[in-house]
Amino acid sequence: MLLTVTDTARIAHGIWQLTLTGTFPYDTVQPGQFLMIRIGAGLEHVLRRPVSIAAVTEDSLAIVFRVVGKGTQWLSERKAGDGLDVLGPLGTGFPLPPAKARVLIVGGGIGAPPLYFLAERVQPLSDRLDVALGFQTQADSFWVDRFAVLGNLKLATDDGSLGLKGTVIDAVESLAADGLKWDYVYACGPIPMLKVVKQCFASQEVQGYVSLEERMACGVGACYGCVCQTGGGSGTRRVCADGPVFDWNGVVL
């Protein structure tokens, strides 16, 4: 489907936000779902780029992405009024927690955007919402104020320019040191980070979900390009269709 860019902004070092509008099933989008975005008009870029949905209103959606190559560079050069060929919403998103659950959301860098949409949905349901976000430096951080409105926010940066000096794991440990306990933990970020987040809760009764990132071709489950290994390592799941969100006990991180 063809959406129209209504707003673009560079919101942090190498991080861009686009707001899109047009005919789209906004009301059906689950937090954690993504778009496959066509890059360029010609045939130089044959693969769409997967980009998570960061926020949704009744007639628009926002995406936040990092420029990592030619495709995302092209995307960052879009201007208000430009059309964008998108496929979505795709994938299986985050299951929402039951009412009254105590929820922790953990985001590392460019893993944060889908968690914002999740936090918006979780906030009215939960008894307690804590958010731990980690960025390299303050210059790399974004949407901090938006997250702060939704829950108790703990930040960490590698250089201490914003929040704690350390990683997002230090932010999680700092929250835990305050005696906080959670029923549901949701995380998105680099695999090593997800692994440690899961380990942090290994001895606790916590329902954990992670959103994975992988290079994709079709984005709809047909090509088996983006797979992860299932819990016992005996099988694979498709990140694009079975995920990108998985119960963290169901996949090898």
Partner: peptide, 9 residues
């Protein structure tokens, strides 16, 4: 993985 990559055209 990675199992897929774009290559010019």
């Amino acid at each position: 993985t990675p199992r897929v990559a774009e290559a010019g055209g």
